[in-house]
């Protein structure tokens, strides 16, 4: 090959062509993809370990919690139909209004920039609040920080089977009693938890509730 100039040229040409194919196939990979995969995996994983005995107790506890959540959501469902507040009722400075504004005004740009925050921080926030990310059919599109009236929240954008939903976690801070607000074509639910609060923003109350159901 080295002795034959034509063969060497042909070999070079073949190599160049393969390099072009390789370069073209290397499409850009979204930043922090591995982190997002691991975040989703880890958040739901603690429930998997342990032996058979642990599994039985976990199953029993899950059933009791699930029944509780169903009853709670059923009650909330009846109530919320009547209690969807407007921006005028809660005031422009309310966490729900601020969250909807942030989602509509800033989120598209954040998704476009494709820069994500630290999954460990997010994981810790979810655990502190006793929430878990849905195990199936949901992808974390973005994670980062966002402003809330009491300071800063952990901001997650989730792609779910029922559309794009934003979840804002506010550990160790109270945002007041549960409120559901409709504003600028979005619905937001602000809910207190034992160790903080969370806000869910979606395009319908149904989507908000579906996500809440999955988080518990």
């Amino acid at each position: 090959m080295a002795r034959c100039a034509k063969c060497a040229a042909l070999a070079r040409e073949v190599e160049d062509f393969d390099a072009r194919i390789h370069d073209a196939a290397m499409v850009p990979v979204p930043e922090a993809l591995a982190d997002r995969v691991l975040l989703r995996h880890k958040v739901r994983e603690p429930a998997r370990f342990g032996g058979f005995g642990f599994g039985i107790w976990a199953l029993a506890a899950s059933l009791i919690i699930a029944i509780g959540v169903v009853i709670h959501l059923h009650r909330a469902d009846i109530g919320d139909e009547e209690r969807i507040a407007t921006s005028a009722a809660v005031g422009e400075g309310h966490a729900a209004i601020a969250a909807i504004s942030y989602v509509l005004d800033h989120e598209p740009q954040l998704l476009k920039e494709n820069v994500s925050g630290d999954p460990a921080v997010m994981r810790s926030a979810l655990m502190r609040l006793g929430l878990k990310l849905p195990a199936k059919g949901t992808t974390v599109r973005y994670l980062g920080k966002c402003p809330v009236p009491s300071g800063e929240g952990e901001h997650l954008v989730l792609q779910t089977p029922f559309g794009q939903v934003t979840l804002i976690l506010v550990p160790e801070q109270s945002l007041g009693p549960r409120v559901v607000v409709a504003y600028r074509d979005r619905t937001a639910a602000v809910s207190p938890l034992r160790s903080g609060s969370y806000i869910v923003v979606a395009d319908s109350l149904r989507a908000v509730k579906q996500l809440e159901q999955m988080l518990m």
């Binding site: 979204p30 989703r40 995996h41």
Partner: peptide, 16 residues
């Protein structure tokens, strides 16, 4: 691209 990420997520879920 969103679908591609979903596929990667699902792949690792199934792998685990």
């Amino acid at each position: 691209r969103f679908l591609a990420e979903d596929l990667v997520q699902e792949t690792f879920t199934r792998a685990w």
